[in-house]
Nucleic acid binder design. Structure first.
Lengths: 342, 342
DNA sequence: TAGGCCCTGGACAACGTTGTCAGCTGAATG
DNA sequence: CATTCAGCTGACAACGTTGTCCAGGGCCTA
């Protein structure tokens, strides 16, 4: 007896199937399926017997098999850069809420800003046959997605545009936001303004830099090379870049920070300075109101919601040409951006 | 021709299968399978032909079918309270990293602190046959998970204990942490200390309250009912509770905040006060160093990592009795907790 | 050169579910 | 009383993959 028991336990996850339920309830397989899916055409009495059998066996429908049969998985994939980044929390959550409203689950992963890892993740999600994908691109070539999209995987790119492929996108107005932020500093009297951003291969970083240059040019102001840092968001490098800008014979009197992570580090560095340096950051930050940090705010939740709604509209059959939505940003003045030149 | 095209497009996701690849490469079905899975026993020449066919057709293995056949999905479910909460970002990320190291994907969802929604989510994940589950419980009765666990779904509860069921858990030392934090305030001369926490049905909230009472009792100090608020983390209610404690004839001189969301609101309220009120918060917060907020820090990433590693050890066959791991907390003094009574 | 062995490739069943279709029962109608 | 019809129910195939098993061919050895 131990033998038979061990033998049957060998197989992992020896879960009851509809067949088992049918046998126990003394009905046909298809009748169980009908009950499980609340399809019409089952006598209350039969239904009760089936329900009891389900209860007794602890049966739970195997969605893998169901998916195989039905074609749709009722799940969407979300590939972002770093789940731990506070910017992506609200975005994920917004996507999740929309997915939930459509009865879909969310599978997500972080690319860690690595194009290869992005592709690996995306393809793994495609292999699972997610119905749709929301991708915050790490790489700049997404041709590998062409067969997938052609095969019916609805795809929306978020925050940064897709590379070498025509697809739906939902972006924030990085250029306009940065331009407004820098113009704000100029309006408060600054002439020497530093820009600390992310690596130029990241589209938003480039756009924000472009906004910086545009604002400076609009005001007829020159830009020194030493005022611009495009190293990365690594705290040590941001710190070094900031300190360097503040050190020379003609130090900057204001800094524009290219994203939330940069802002955080810059705030730390500025707090150590004697002079009061003006600061505007891209992306809002928790508690920024208490710290009096002026920011260009993009609504991460709105971005996520918009992208997800777009995705489900596609899944519901919308087949217009790929659209590019650009959401506006808002300048929130809290003090740090209104400081005069030191 | 438009007709035939439309006709073939009617079926959604008309993707090529191994059969199609086999036909095109002029080999058998199983040979394609071998190539796709890098199994031995295929001539280089045959392999090349198959690879070409795969390329040409844009074939991608259907993991749903694979799962059905193999039994394991190589995915784990993570049910937390709110993806947007900064506490859960690093936790999710840590879980994801461990999952990735084990070749598994992460499916996650937010319970929004609603027990029904938690159950709904968990069962949906079980229906997808995730190999394992990491759950931050919203409810206090998890007997519904018994058949699943028995069927082989490895389950680890995190941050709060499971209800009415014997399972693995990874917790932070809420009691000890709160006790230490309150003792810290007492050591700095405070006698009237407020406690603002989450609803008592949430286990960590109760534990932290218990820690508060313990610290007060240790010091032989009384506790007024009006010093304790267990409303919720809703900013308006926290604000009201804080203001009330600061208003009476015998206002508190220090506040212990029960979690990160409470802390954030309390900080805002205290910033508006004329008197300097001491504060210690449970959970660290970004930029808390700049704001000088003293906190009891729990390492969310460590919690997530520990839980995930535990989970995979189970999946690899560990079958010891359910374990309960409790991770220590750290007090980080930054100023707000060291203020003397006003 | 014959015998046997290894290596490669393919036919077939099975995983658990759902869609199709046909059979059966009992009631209503002419 | 015969006939039709509706409402239940179940047998069977199919979804796309992998595991098992067997066949055929080339190569080595005696």
């Amino acid at each position: 007896m131990a033998e038979t028991a061990r033998h049957s336990e060998t197989r992992y996850g020896n879960r009851p199937t509809m067949k088992d339920v049918a046998a126990r309830a003394g009905v046909g397989l298809k009748t169980v399926s009908r009950v499980v899916n609340s399809e019409p055409g089952v006598t209350p009495d039969t239904e009760r017997r089936v329900q009891e059998a389900i209860e007794a066996l602890g049966f739970r429908r195997n969605d893998s098999a169901r998916v195989l049969r039905k074609g749709r998985t009722a799940s969407i994939g979300l590939v972002l850069e770093d789940l731990a980044d506070p910017f992506y929390g609200p975005l994920s959550r917004a996507v999740e809420e929309v997915a939930r409203a459509h009865g879909a689950l969310l599978i997500n992963g972080s690319s860690a800003e690595d194009p290869e890892r992005e592709q690996e993740l995306v393809l793994a999600l495609c292999a699972r046959r997610v119905d749709g994908l929301i991708v915050i691109p790490a790489g700049d070539d997404h041709r590998y997605l062409e067969p997938e999209i052609k095969a019916g995987v609805a795809t929306v790119f978020v925050d940064r545009p897709a590379g070498r492929i025509d697809a739906d996108m939902v972006l924030s107005d990085s250029f306009g936001g940065a331009r407004e932020g820098v113009a704000h500093l100029i309006a408060h009297g600054h002439r020497r303004i530093g820009f600390i951003g992310d690596q130029p291969r990241i589209h938003t970083a480039t756009e924000r830099l472009r906004g910086y240059h545009a604002a400076m040019a609009d005001a007829g102001m020159r830009v020194e090379d030493s005022w611009v840092s495009l190293a990365s968001t690594d705290p040590d490098r941001v710190r070094a870049a900031t300190e360097q800008m503040l050190a020379g014979p003609e130090p900057v009197t204001a800094v524009f920070a290219g994203n939330n992570r940069v802002t955080v580090t810059v705030v730390r560095v500025l707090a150590e300075q004697e002079r009061r340096i003006a600061l505007v950051g891209f992306d809002d930050i928790e508690l920024a109101d208490l710290l009096g940090i002026t920011v260009i705010s993009q609504d991460a939740a709105a971005v996520g919601r918009t992208a997800a709604e777009h995705l489900f509209r596609r899944l519901d059959g919308a087949d217009h040409a790929p659209a590019r939505v650009e959401l506006p940003t808002t300048l929130i003045a809290r003090g740090s951006g209104e400081l005069p030149p030191a």
